[in-house]
């Protein structure tokens, strides 16, 4: 694990996830059409676009959370480090340990703060004993910038924290399984501005270790936290490139209309 981190750090521009001609169907509804995208390691990639454009749907394809929705079908090829994640041999359970996810609404389990973070390591058997687990929990809570606020009440329920703290707890919980990619589905939409600022700061720090993909409604947020941006419209990936280029010099007229507020 640590070796891998060392290796990838050498080349910050490694492609982590590669999608080619990805299609998603909900029953008869063709939700995602021909999406080609390369998600880079150690980079924050933002998916933007109007509501219902398919950006969350596509995000959920990346760790096969779509499997839990009846009638959902994915075609095309999505690979993680060159391995097709929709291959029959792939166990979604293993995939999701590598590609973690943080959701729109903070969803801490009705357990203690400690147990929330320890949940992933426990089910995946990542630690050998309690001392190691304690270390992992502390490390993750520190990475999530939550340790100082909760270190004296690790055994209290996670549901008792404030909204921003809950979302950081969920991030800590997600990084506790040592994922390679972290997917975030509008992680700040349920938070107030101060909590949003804290989470955005955290995302920026996480970039040093993970590849982060964030779906957001807010173009400002995309501009603040991401290095690369993908613009989705009606199930199509319209434009994908450097964040600065997308916001200052979009190539597609649809991107420009969206950024200037004419569609949305």
């Amino acid at each position: 694990m640590k070796d891998l981190v060392m290796e990838t750090r050498v080349d910050a521009q490694t492609v982590k996830i590669e999608a080619r001609k990805a299609q998603v169907f909900y029953g008869q509804n063709h939700a995602i059409k021909d999406v080609d995208v390369d998600i880079l390691d150690k980079t924050v990639t933002a998916f933007i676009g109007p509501s219902g454009c398919g950006k969350s749907t596509f995000l959920r394809c990346l760790n096969r959370m779509n499997d839990t929705i009846p009638g959902c079908r994915v075609e095309g090829k999505i690979t993680l480090e060159g391995e097709d994640i929709y291959d029959a041999r792939v166990d979604p359970v293993q995939l999701r340990a590598k590609v973690g996810m943080v959701f729109q609404k903070p969803n801490p389990f009705p357990k203690s703060i400690y147990d929330n973070v320890a949940y992933g390591p426990k089910i995946h058997g990542l630690t050998r004993n309690k001392a190691e687990l304690d270390e992992v929990v502390e490390a993750c809570l520190r990475k999530a910038a939550l340790w100082n606020e909760v270190k004296d009440r690790l055994q209290t329920p996670g549901t008792g924290l404030s909204g921003g703290q809950q979302q950081r707890l969920c991030i800590a919980r997600a990084i506790a399984t040592s994922p390679e990619v972290l997917l975030m589905d509008e992680p700040c939409s349920a938070l107030d501005p101060i909590a949003t600022a804290q989470v955005e700061e955290l995302i920026d720090e996480l970039r040093s270790q993970f590849s982060v993909v964030i779906v957001t409604h807010s173009m400002q947020q995309a501009a603040r936290v991401s290095q690369r941006t993908a613009f989705f419209h009606l199930g199509n990936l319209v434009e994908y490139g450097e964040t600065g280029q997308i916001f200052t010099n979009p190539r597609d007229p649809r991107t420009e209309s969206y950024i200037t507020g004419r569609i949305g």
Binding site: R89, D91, Q94, A97, K98
Partner: peptide
């Protein structure tokens, strides 16, 4: 965790069982 997605480690096999 760094193994290939195409092979299941012993623990995953046990969990799937």
């Amino acid at each position: 965790m760094s193994g290939s997605l195409f092979t299941q480690d012993a623990r995953t096999k046990a969990r799937n069982a």
